[in-house]
Design a protein around this nucleic acid. Sequence first.
RNA 1: GCGCCCGUAGCUCAGUGGAUAGAGCAGCGGAUUUCUAAUCCGCUGGUCGUUGGUUCGAUCCCAACCGGGCGUGCCA
Length: 587
Amino acid sequence: MFRAVLTDRLQAAFTAAGIAAPEGFSPAVVIASDTRYGDYQSNAAMVLAKQMKTNPRALAEQIKAALETVCADLCEKITVDGPGFLNFTLGAPALAQRLAFIIRDAHAGVPQAARPKRVVVDFSAPNIAKPMHVGHIRSTFIGDSLARVARFLGHEVITDNHVGDWGTQFGMIIHGWKTRLDQEALKKDAIHELVRVYKTVNAEAKADDAVLEVCKAELVKLQQGDAENLGIWKECVRLTLEQLEKVYTALDIRFDHYLGESFYNDALAPLVEDMLARGIATESEGAVCVFSDGSLKPEDDPFLIKEKDSWKAAPCIIRKSDGGFLYATTDLATIDYRVREWRADEIWYVVGAPQQLHFRQVFAAAQRRGVGTEMTHIAFGSILGPDGKMFKTRSGETVGLLEVIEESIERAREAVDSRDQGHSAEEKEEIARIIGTAAVKYAELSQNRLTDYKFSWDKMLSLQGNTAPYLLNAYVRTRSIFRKLEGGTVDLAGAKLTITEPAERALALKLSQFAETVHDILADHRPNLLANYLFELANTYHSFYEACPVLKAEGAARATRLALCEGASRVLKAGLGLLGIQTTERM
RNA sequence: GCGCCCGUAGCUCAGUGGAUAGAGCAGCGGAUUUCUAAUCCGCUGGUCGUUGGUUCGAUCCCAACCGGGCGUGCCA
């Protein structure tokens, strides 16, 4: 990765030029904002000149002189432009050398993390007896992608699906199970039937307090360990997980664990007692709460909220006045488990932005209990409906996640059918499945996770533009060349590579930047950086493909172009794989 | 009331201290004796919500305001 190498060289140039950089100053090299300025650029001279109160251009010239010696093997040109930018243009030999490395390296040139960590990724978390809907798209795909990226970089990743299997909804479901369950329907589609039962009872309970009381009684019996209710609950969990497993398989997502909320039931009471005993939590209005301990500035304290001119307590409740436990209690017990049993260095929570305060409180409470593990809330915005309003789980009318995927596959199938590439029926089916699934995943992952976005069938399922099919097509084009090659394969290991054409150069440079990109993803937990990169790579490859015939070329040009195709092929496959997207050899 | 997030081209969205703010879609015009045209090349399109401030330099940082969303003691 040239960015890191150039940064080191810049540091060396400072020393060579006898420039004493102030404490804490580290020069930064970034990919050039515009190709006409070169390949990489640095504003180090301007930043430093400001601190040293000297002329930025003069300082830049001084650094440049040193750089030219230090970077002789990498750069063919280093210039000082504008107010004092240092611009680097890489030499063709350095790019060719890098290309040779990318096509033989198992990680396509991406270095492993300097300090591997054990990371628990908490994502997806659907509820039992409810179908996965579009609202689960963000957590599920972002979480899966981040887990893949972390693994790729050499971290030890544990994925844990913290399913909602212990909510108050079970009072109604159990009552419904006992009185109006349709066994046939349950066999056909368990979740659908459980939802129907829940909705029916819920409507009745709203209209009739007597029904509501019965449901509450069923819930209490469940919580007290009543054998029959426990049996019904277990069956609901089993049936739902069975169906969820099918969805995850279709999405090519797997979890190491499915430790739902109920897994921590026995830990909740002791946890609260412990926190009371240690003075971390106190009783207030009958509930057990965690209040501010005054160790933080009020504006940074998650247990305080401003009201007029004073600060008011915003407690985190861990036990209700009726003795029941909450989300926060379970989360604290879950943290204990992950730290104790898994020795997690980090825990990532891929959960929507509205729960920001909740996590700030839970993390702060855990820290007060002595938890040193780094916990990160990887928040994301909402998916909005076509009207621009919250895409909420309105009673009834939710779009199921599986239906979205199926619709997408159906549209992909139509596109595949209309093109007639001589594929067999099975091939077409497989291609449609891969493209359809990829389209939905890419639509999500190419989005900045923090911003809200509009759910649109047309955009999500479009096979044109900045979409998965565009990227897959680039990959397919790399593969078709190797299929057409006489003998089927070619040994590029010792080939002499010479980069001459602008399109070759642009592609070689872009390929080398895969390393930078993958490295950057985890800095802010943003898979869309990778999606953006892959789109640019596909674009660069398509341009190269139009400009530079591969099989018709001869000698070193042919070997170089084959190497570029091989590099593009590897990086596209690896990159899409990190987004959880499978590739296809033909389409 | 207070807190957090958001406001960028007709639409959907990237970019977040740097050099003339980008892309896709839509619109217009080209390219196919070809390694997959699900492609490429070009054109059109912007007071980066408003007003101030900091800076050599602000879409980005700070303040205020306008508009939208979410959250704010016993749901998850």
